[in-house]
């Protein structure tokens, strides 16, 4: 087939048109409660065109909500990276540590954020009003930690023996062995883990905000569902998707920089 120069633009636009058509047809036929694309746009216009407006606690511009969510994700994700990377190193370096904790990790890893959140709330119940925030942070951190932990461990185990031999011949101290050889050699794997973790952190935020009712893009979505403003559910989904996509792209850029190093 002949390739057009504008394939990269035309084909995605065509895909979008197909989905929009399916959406419009669905809302006009069998899904009568689904707002049509046009209605969705009309209802969302204020939120999109004044993205940073603040009209009330749960009535703010969409980017303002997104910002709240991003701040919470950044905190939880930072916690995940700070805790997960050392655990990954320990898993990769020590056979005993790996044997001790690997089964536990394999069991905790598939637990859904929806299951962690109540536990997080209980854990921080004595903080009173802040319990929601801490519970959400706990949930984001524990759910998004695993890819960082596992990828770091794989990376540490994959450090070429040759590099370790260089360190042994030079009799490097443990600290130098870690900072000059192990960490740089593991960095590409670590960044793969960081990227996957960020994706999960962003997935978890929506669930966490829904259950805690925090202002944010997920909290907004749930509130508008309860207020029967279905257009805003769709708006929120689109924004969540776009933000997740951008985050992933940014992390890939960072990752590819370290791949070559």
């Amino acid at each position: 087939m002949k390739r057009l120069k504008l394939d990269w633009l035309i084909l995605p636009l065509f895909g979008l048109a197909v989905i929009l058509a399916a959406w419009a047809i669905s809302s006009a036929t069998w899904a009568s409660n689904l707002p049509s694309p046009l209605k969705t746009w009309e209802s969302s216009r204020d939120y999109v065109l004044q993205p940073f407006a603040k009209r009330g606690e749960m009535d703010q511009g969409i980017l303002r909500f997104t910002w709240y969510s991003l701040v919470l994700v950044a905190q939880g994700y930072a916690l995940a990276v700070l805790v997960g990377t050392p655990i990954g190193f320990l898993l990769g370096l020590s056979r005993t540590f790996a044997r001790t904790f690997d089964p536990l990790i394999q069991i905790l890893r598939p637990v859904s954020p929806l299951a962690w959140l109540p536990l997080g709330l209980v854990l921080f119940l004595n903080t009173g009003k802040e319990a929601g925030t801490y519970g959400a942070l706990f949930t984001i951190a524990i759910c998004s930690m695993w890819p960082t932990v596992l990828n770091t461990a794989v990376g540490v185990r994959a450090v070429p023996q040759d590099y370790l031999n260089v360190g042994r011949v030079l009799k490097l101290s443990r600290w130098k062995m870690l900072t000059r050889i192990l960490i740089p050699a593991t960095l590409p794997y670590m960044f793969t883990g960081f990227r996957l973790s960020l994706g999960i952190a962003w997935l978890v935020i929506v669930a966490a905000e829904m259950l805690t009712g925090r202002p944010g893009v997920g909290g907004f979505l749930w509130q508008e569902y309860n207020s029967l403003i279905y257009e805003h559910i769709i708006l929120s989904i689109i924004v969540i998707g776009l933000v997740g996509f951008v985050l992933d792209r940014l992390m890939s850029l960072l990752e590819s920089r370290f791949k070559t190093a």
Partner: peptide, 13 residues
């Protein structure tokens, strides 16, 4: 004991 390895084993970073 200084070792010269077959693959030079320079640290790429």
């Amino acid at each position: 004991r200084g070792v010269v390895f077959q693959a030079p084993c320079l640290l790429p970073w």
